[in-house]
Amino acid sequence: MGIQRRQFLHSTGGMALAALIQARPVDAAEDGFCVPDDPLQALMAGNRRFADAWRLALQENRATLRTTDPDPRCFNSPRALSTSQRPWATVLTCSDSRVSPSWVFDTTPGDLFVIRNAGNSAFDEAIASVEYSVSVLKTPLVMVMGHSGCGAVTAAMDDKPLTPSLERLIHPIEETISGSSNLAEAVRRNALATASTLIQRSSALAEAKSSGALKLVVGYFELTTGVVTLIK
């Protein structure tokens, strides 16, 4: 039987946790946070752990089925992923380090096509990427996902000076959330506006949605609970 998702996560995650425990604290006042002494070394060490587990999966050369869950599902063969991809959902979300779609939705490589930018806005590049996922890769589902405590939306609600590039980044968010005084409400409004922009500015996405080839939804990820709530 091929390597199981949970076994894969346990083998790699356990080693990652051990490395994390050995890392030094950033600041005693920031309880619960720590970083490695050498971030690049930590990245490459993490990749070596992943690659070792990946090679084990490659030796099996087949998709695996986890049957112990209430909703068993098939996981992609690493060898198949080396030459192609068939993601079944696209997620446009924030670049926030706490918001990782693969972990939030408990998925494996090849499942999600992910587009990320601070504030999950529908910039030209984001729209083009979603068009690619829908038109070429044929993903039937697109989710725009905002999250609690979003820094980009917080900045858009504030009047603190920013760099020119950051000003351009939050400008569309400012227009979307004008009048909002509650961060959670503003995040939801921004995510809903992004979903609307995708359809308004892309005839390919509009046609796919109209024909039923695409389902477009909006989600809100609550960091304190880990729960994603559908708001559209």
Results as ranks from 00 to 15, higher is better:
71 D>Q: 13
85 Q>H: 06
73 R>Q: 15
152 A>S: 14
216 L>E: 05
157 M>L: 14
20 L>A: 11
96 D>H: 02
190 N>F: 07
157 M>E: 03
92 L>E: 05
172 P>N: 11
46 G>N: 02
16 A>S: 12
215 K>M: 05
18 A>E: 12
195 A>N: 08
133 S>H: 02
172 P>I: 05
86 R>I: 03
85 Q>R: 12
186 A>E: 05
174 E>H: 11
223 L>C: 02
162 L>E: 11
94 C>N: 02
86 R>F: 09
212 G>V: 12
127 I>N: 06
72 P>R: 06
93 T>I: 00
24 R>K: 11
38 D>P: 00
42 A>W: 03
52 D>Y: 11
58 L>H: 05
210 S>Q: 13
80 A>I: 07
148 S>M: 05
121 S>V: 15
18 A>I: 09
221 F>K: 08
40 L>P: 02
205 L>M: 05
25 P>C: 09
110 G>K: 04
61 N>D: 08
180 S>W: 05
229 T>V: 00
148 S>K: 05
26 V>W: 03
101 P>Q: 02
8 F>A: 12
34 C>W: 10
28 A>Q: 13
228 V>I: 06
5 R>Y: 10
157 M>F: 06
180 S>I: 13
163 T>H: 04
65 L>Y: 14
153 V>F: 10
49 R>F: 06
29 A>K: 12
114 V>M: 11
77 S>K: 06
205 L>K: 01
105 F>Q: 04
125 E>R: 09
166 L>Y: 07
149 G>K: 13
43 L>N: 01
202 S>A: 10
3 I>E: 04
18 A>G: 10
151 G>W: 07
63 A>R: 10
66 R>G: 10
184 A>N: 08
107 T>P: 00
216 L>K: 02
107 T>D: 02
203 S>R: 14
85 Q>I: 07
162 L>W: 04
105 F>R: 00
160 K>F: 15
227 V>Y: 01
82 S>R: 09
158 D>N: 13
141 L>V: 15
21 I>V: 15
44 M>D: 01
21 I>A: 06
170 I>S: 03
51 A>W: 08
5 R>F: 07
27 D>T: 04
88 W>L: 10
194 T>V: 04
11 S>T: 08
169 L>V: 12
7 Q>F: 07
166 L>T: 12
89 A>F: 12
59 Q>R: 09
217 V>Y: 05
196 S>G: 11
15 M>C: 08
102 S>M: 06
68 T>G: 12
49 R>I: 01
166 L>D: 06
133 S>L: 13
146 G>N: 09
83 T>Q: 09
55 R>V: 13
44 M>Q: 08
228 V>Y: 00
49 R>M: 07
114 V>L: 09
85 Q>A: 08
62 R>N: 10
51 A>L: 13
154 T>H: 03
62 R>M: 08
7 Q>M: 01
132 Y>M: 02
162 L>N: 09
24 R>E: 15
34 C>M: 10
26 V>M: 13
145 M>Q: 07
45 A>V: 14
156 A>Y: 11
129 S>W: 15
184 A>Y: 03
97 S>A: 15
34 C>F: 11
157 M>A: 01
36 P>G: 01
128 A>Y: 09
22 Q>M: 13
197 T>H: 12
222 E>N: 04
9 L>G: 00
170 I>M: 08
121 S>Y: 11
28 A>K: 10
16 A>Y: 08
31 D>P: 00
